Computed example of a mutant assay.
Amino acid sequence: MAEGDVRFRVLTVCTGNICRSPAAERLIRRVWVDGAAGVEVVSGGTHAMVGEPIQISMAHLLEQSGAYSGEFCAQLLTPQLVERADLVLGMTRRHRAAAVALGPAATGRTFTLREFARLVADGAAEFEPTEDRVESLRRVVELAGSRRRAVLDPAVDDIADPYGRDLEAYHLAFTEISRAVDLVGRVLEGLPVSDPRVVGPAAPSPEEAPPGRRSWGRRRR
């Protein structure tokens, strides 16, 4: 998409940028955008495995869901990516904080994915979709921002990193991402939403650390 054609940018963020954030990126493209003009969805990693494709287990889950997993190269999260985004979605609270640290001006439009879905679903009765998907996206960001509040257990906003774990961990992460994306998609379409608690609580997530402090083994991330 040409630079001048982009009217709304979504940025998803995780650690390696080969599991969670690309899954969210591709699902958002399919569910929220679905061919609408003027919307760009990209992802980045706080400690990206630069140049790597989507990890094979996550790629299979994407393909099974009908989303495209090809033509992907992991990239590092940068201040430029954050500053240019109209909506930033971290996969955990740490990713949200990292994005805000790189682009403090983006604080008001930066959420975790599950937090964003919960807030949007909570305010769904107030939302009126428009024919212009860009305008609808702007409105849901404003809606989420207006309803942001502290939660009793902030950990419900985290999606655990499946890398280096079994297939069940990948399925869990993918399911949590997909549910959050679908929930927002229903609001964008003006459809009834299920209980917003489907985006929480999260499974306990292991402490995340950058490569060098965590053993990644020899498996592709």
Rank of each mutant, 00 (worst) to 15 (best):
S215Q: 12
D157C: 14
L81H: 10
Y163P: 07
G217W: 12
R9K: 07
R84S: 08
T78I: 03
A85E: 07
D132N: 09
Y163H: 15
Q75D: 05
T92H: 00
P201K: 01
A74D: 02
A85L: 06
V100Q: 10
A74Y: 00
A160I: 15
R148P: 14
M58D: 08
G200W: 02
P129I: 04
V134M: 09
V6C: 10
G4H: 08
V13I: 06
L27Y: 00
A155G: 13
S65R: 11
T78Y: 00
F127M: 06
E168P: 07
P206M: 04
R9G: 02
R186Y: 06
H95P: 14
D182E: 15
A124S: 13
R197Q: 06
M49Q: 06
I159W: 00
A203F: 04
V151L: 12
D132R: 00
R26A: 06
I54R: 00
G145P: 12
T92E: 05
I28D: 02
A180K: 03
L188E: 12
F127H: 14
R29K: 12
I28W: 01
R96E: 12
A117Y: 05
A106F: 11
I177W: 00
A67V: 09
L143R: 00
A97F: 11
L89W: 02
T112C: 15
V10T: 13
Y163V: 09
A24Q: 03
P192S: 04
T92F: 04
L191W: 12
V199K: 01
L119G: 15
E63N: 10
H60D: 11
I28F: 03
A36V: 05
R197W: 05
A23N: 02
R165F: 13
Q80R: 11
R138M: 05
R109Y: 04
P154E: 07
G164F: 11
A101N: 09
R9A: 08
A173T: 14
V33S: 01
T12G: 09
V187A: 11
S136L: 03
L119K: 00
S69D: 11
S178G: 15
G200S: 11
P210D: 03
L152E: 08
I18Q: 05
L152F: 15
V140G: 06
V33A: 00
V187H: 06
S21G: 04
G4F: 04
M91K: 00
A74V: 01
M58I: 13
L191S: 12
V193I: 08
S43V: 12
G70M: 08
G35M: 02
R118W: 15
T110G: 12
I54G: 05
A37H: 02
G44D: 09
V33C: 15
R9N: 08
L102S: 01
G44A: 13
V82Q: 04
A37I: 03
R214K: 09
A36E: 09
L172F: 13
G108E: 11
R94H: 07
A48Q: 14
A2Q: 07
Q75C: 13
R7N: 03
P154V: 04
L89Q: 00
A36W: 02
V39L: 08
A209M: 04
V141T: 14
Q75F: 05
V151Y: 06
V31Q: 01
R220F: 09
L62V: 08
L81T: 09
A23D: 10
